[in-house]
Design a protein around this nucleic acid. Sequence first.
DNA 1: TGGGATAGCTTGGGCGTCAATGGAAAATCA
DNA 2: TGATTTTCCATTGACGCCCAAGCTATCCCA
Lengths: 155, 155
Amino acid sequence: MERFLSSAINKVDKKGRVSIPAVFRPALKGGSTLYATLSVDQPAVEAGGPELLEVNEKRLAAMDSFSPEYEYFSLLVHGDMNIMNIDGEGRVILSDAIREHTGITNQVAFVGRGHFFQIWEPERFQAYREEARAKVAEMRRALSAGNGQGKDTGT
Amino acid sequence: MERFLSSAINKVDKKGRVSIPAVFRPALKGGSTLYATLSVDQPAVEAGGPELLEVNEKRLAAMDSFSPEYEYFSLLVHGDMNIMNIDGEGRVILSDAIREHTGITNQVAFVGRGHFFQIWEPERFQAYREEARAKVAEMRRALSAGNGQGKDTGT
DNA sequence: TGGGATAGCTTGGGCGTCAATGGAAAATCA
DNA sequence: TGATTTTCCATTGACGCCCAAGCTATCCCA
């Protein structure tokens, strides 16, 4: 599999290690390094292989390197980047910054997002997921009120 | 690693020495000299190997050589350059000028910026980091409002 | 179709190595 | 010679690497 699909919850051991779900590892193509950034609008972390870094650097390359936007974005892409080594058993150690940002203590939710995956504190993820559902339901009601079609779309 | 990525906080000892984070040393390619300039618009220092000189000279070359900006920047790049020796344990001593400009007392934040890295007083860095996160979140919202796409950071 | 065997995923722990830090000895300068 | 800097050595704690065990899902065969 080349993409990150499905989700899983794993435990953090005494040494602070967590197994990356086995279903995600093929998408990392055997690399032993994980690149991760703290999401700017959620208590989550977005992680993936080196492509994650390359993608962001391409974006930077397309920006005016003297603009304040470049400055801010580069800080997040380079300075705020978390680099994690994957051990022989497919585990990583979460940095203090990650634990602080996500609220993770002894359990981690891994959520596939296609070309990257997210790391959440399980309860917060659950809350976010329900919020997302509620939002979608609300949007659908608004749409149906507007055009009179309202019937379910099957999904 | 050829680039400076991630960040770390290290202590200053009684003699004024600080360890350069081990993850940055490969990017210095074993050189024992650190070149550093005081950042113009932040209470930070920008440091790196000899290439940093070249980079700054390229920047100069891109500027109008009769402009006052050129004059000042040239002075900063050449005259205000701090040269630091890296000792056997990978430590450097911060000059008075650097301590004054950054406000550093007994802790130093090292922040990767790609082809160079920054040195900050940790609390000031934290404030700047949050500012950057807020600004990037704002940029992203502006973008999504414009094209209707979400906050997907992956691609 | 049921049950046992098997392989692989997750988790736990031991141990050696290296990074970060502190301090002493040696060298340099005024 | 006193003071300050540079080099060298020691300590501590974190991290990487290795091995082991429990669990689960899958596969195979009767």
